[in-house]
Design a protein around this nucleic acid. Structure first.
Lengths: 139, 139
DNA sequence: CATAGTACATTGCTATACGAGGTATGTGGC
DNA sequence: GCCACATACCTCGTATAGCAATGTACTATG
């Protein structure tokens, strides 16, 4: 049962920061994955990976789901599967929906602040131009 | 010298997640604050607070700056101040500039993924597709 | 010299992500 | 029936990070 995932988790990896970046966004992402309807654990992982490049391990998602359930933001129910093995489906509660909307708003604010900060970095032709004209910078 | 900041760190605080959200983005923000020129420690804190609502404590910024310097992403120099007390100014190195640009790109990708995930949450009027496509069902 | 202000630095606590490993259930080959 | 395998859920241990609190150093002012 190989579980490699090529974490390369030693200290010399220059992309460690990227892993840290995801911290804290995970609870929000987990809630968001349930917006359209119930999913079970591994399904959430696959959904997030496909939808938003957010890769997280099983050891990550289950503690998060338990935290969220303990807070009353989602509920879980065992569902028999005709093939395979029973699955625990998670659904948003009303409280979870409201919380997610608040989180999403705060995220938008946070992202806007960082975007403003990073504008000169991502778009080197800034400072001399007020509006347009010279907007043909590489994209 | 009040340093309250309303910790209230017990488990019933609904805004703990927001603090976590900032994790990992701080190194990038610290680098970004130096994009226009050198700043000293406390100045970085004030800059980030004013520019992007990113509030961080001294106990946070100094370890970050030391980490970044140890990685060669920035340099520091003591500068005598005619009034007050010498300040340690930090500047981006060429390596730091490059790294920051890479970080900014990764941030943009990450933010785009989360945005896509949160679109139905932030914009309840889904179904009235304005920019069409992207309404693909997940997997 | 005492107080206050500014700036840098360190320590200790707590929370978190996540790799690794474990359990339970069903399926197919022999 | 048995064994290998796949799927799914769960848990423990560890490394790391943010940050409140606290300490040190220097200067200015009265």
């Amino acid at each position: 049962m190989v579980r490699l995932r090529t974490r390369s988790s030693n200290s010399d990896t220059p992309d460690r920061w990227e892993a840290q970046l995801r911290k804290g966004a995970l609870e929000m992402a987990a809630l968001a994955s349930l917006w359209h309807g119930r999913l079970y654990g591994l399904e959430i992982i696959r959904f997030l990976e496909g939808e938003s490049q957010l890769i997280l391990a099983e050891g990550t998602i289950y503690p998060i789901l338990n935290r969220l359930r303990a807070e009353g933001l989602l509920t879980s129910e065992w569902v028999e599967a005709e093939a395979g093995h029973p699955r625990k489906y998670y659904s948003l509660t009303e409280s979870g929906r409201l919380r997610l909307m608040k989180m999403a708003e705060a995220w938008a604010t946070f992202a806007a602040g960082l975007s403003r900060l990073l504008t000169p970095v991502l778009n080197p032709a800034v400072g001399t131009v007020t509006t347009q004209e010279k907007q043909e910078v590489f994209l």
